[in-house]
Simulated scan of single mutants.
Amino acid sequence: MRAVAGAVLLVVLVALVVAGPFVSPWGWDEIDFSAFREGPSAAHWLGTTRSGRDVFALTLRGARTSLVVGFAAAAISTGLAAVVGAFAGYAGGALDRGLMWGTDVLLILPPLLVVAVVRPGGGMAALAPSLAAFMWMVTARAVRAETLSLRGREYVLAARFVGVRAPRALVRHVLPQLASLLAVDASLNVGIAIVAESGLSYLGLGVRPPDVSLGVLIADGGGVGGAFPWPFGFAAVLLVVIVLAVNLVGDGLRDVFDPESR
């Protein structure tokens, strides 16, 4: 039930982000020189910022950026965890030890601090892979453990005996058995990536102008939130709702695939 509720809420949010710019009277990069820090009105549904930009259009643009970064980072990190963990568990030996050594080294590093120091350029195109590079290690270890168990099954042993190469055996016989683990991991990683991106952008280390994200909007309006709450308040609420929807989907999927976790 939680997965359905989260999925419905997430679909509504995505539909709003996609359709919103077509119904908004203002573009996210347009400036109204006659309205600076104006409250919500018929002309500006959620008010304007100190620079005269429409808050409704900016919030939708920020939500789009955060969602794209979140989904891209989750997809990359889950894919990387599946490849590294499956190959390590299936091959064993020196390859297993080498891959797990590299995984353990990355686990020691503080991820957000490293990304903040590196400060990748290129906006979303560079930020999503940078976040994903430090989100896959724990899942890779779980995938490796499951693969170690699966490679002793009769159908996997039979495939190896007849000479089926490792990549084909993994794709056909191992990874389908790990689909539930990877699906839950990907859904939960979306929320983690969105929060991480928002935190970095809030500090000025993530998405950079002229683009915006929810973290940028919260930082921009947070200093005067008491007197002018609309520039940052709507972005903060939308960020909470997005993360809540994604986590509901993740928790629901975990309950479906692993009833003992309830």
Rank of each mutant, 00 (worst) to 15 (best):
Y202W: 14
H44K: 07
P129I: 07
A158H: 14
L175S: 04
A145D: 10
Y90C: 02
R144K: 07
L58I: 05
L182R: 11
G222A: 13
V105L: 15
M135N: 03
A125G: 05
T65I: 09
L60I: 10
F71K: 00
G121I: 12
F232K: 00
V164P: 01
S261E: 11
G252Q: 09
R262V: 12
D258E: 14
S180E: 08
R254L: 02
Y202K: 07
G204C: 08
A158S: 13
V17K: 10
G20M: 10
V216I: 14
W101M: 13
A35T: 11
T103N: 12
A73C: 01
V164T: 11
G225S: 13
A236D: 00
W45Y: 13
G39M: 11
P210V: 14
G223T: 12
S187R: 03
L13Y: 08
L99W: 11
L157G: 14
L13P: 02
V69E: 01
P229F: 02
R168A: 05
L239W: 15
V115E: 03
R151S: 03
V216D: 01
A193Y: 08
W26E: 00
D251I: 05
S66K: 07
I76A: 01
A236L: 13
A81C: 09
P25R: 09
P110Q: 01
L58K: 10
N247C: 07
G102P: 09
W136E: 00
A43D: 11
G39P: 08
V190R: 01
S187C: 09
S180F: 14
G226W: 15
T103G: 08
